[in-house]
């Protein structure tokens, strides 16, 4: 039995050692593991103009301007992390999920004039899963505007069904209890 417990302790010790080695490595490289930089980080330490970086943040409500230069659509919008904002210029078709208030990741370079020239824009959806009708009901009742941030506390809507939301839509005067 002593041999068995020795093997158990040995296995635990090896796992612990390996675990802490991995933790230290990941900690040391954590700035390389992050998928994107926030606008405030870009402001604080502007990357070299020839370096491709990923910029992540929320599209500021009311900041999206769409133009067409020749044949290609051009979009200009501000991306913020709540502390700073960066204007992004992107030529091309934006992903379906792109909207004001949506989190996006733009891949490109920071040009010297302060705008970020994106070669690719990825939409990042959040962890809120909500039926369309419920989102619509929340928006109509003024509890949530998707353009200005995250959904309200899940407990306030996660049991609301599509039928509740439709009933709500049929009689807009009736207010929800809570």
């Amino acid at each position: 039995m002593t041999r068995k417990s020795r093997r158990l302790w040995l296995a635990c010790a090896c796992l612990l050692g390996l675990g802490s080695a991995t933790a230290l490595t990941l900690n040391a490289f954590s700035s390389n593991i992050v998928f994107f930089m926030a606008p405030s980080q870009i402001h604080a330490k502007p990357p070299a103009p020839d370096r491709t970086v990923r910029l992540g943040g929320m599209v500021v409500a009311g900041s999206v301007r769409r133009q067409t230069v020749g044949e290609t659509p051009v979009a200009l919008f501000d991306v913020t992390d709540g502390q700073a904002a960066v204007t992004v210029r992107y030529e091309g078709i934006l992903p379906d999920l792109f909207r004001e208030g949506q989190s996006v990741v733009a891949i490109g370079t920071a040009s010297p004039d302060g705008t970020f020239r994106a070669s690719e824009v990825l939409a990042k959806h959040d962890e809120t899963y909500m039926p369309k009708e419920v989102a619509e009901a929340l928006r109509r009742s003024g509890k949530w505007d998707p353009r200005y941030g995250k959904a309200p506390d899940a407990a306030s809507w996660d049991t609301m069904t599509v039928r509740d939301a439709r009933k709500d839509a049929a009689g807009p005067q009736q207010q929800h209890g809570s």
Binding site: A38, E127, Y129, A155
Partner: peptide
């Protein structure tokens, strides 16, 4: 949770209410 990723955080955790409608849960 540790790094910012393109993948969204977990909707269902052991500690908090799921940020998901029960109709989908």
């Amino acid at each position: 949770q540790w790094w910012n990723t393109l993948h969204q955080p977990d909707s269902i955790t052991l500690t908090g209410a799921p940020t998901m409608s029960t109709a989908m849960l």
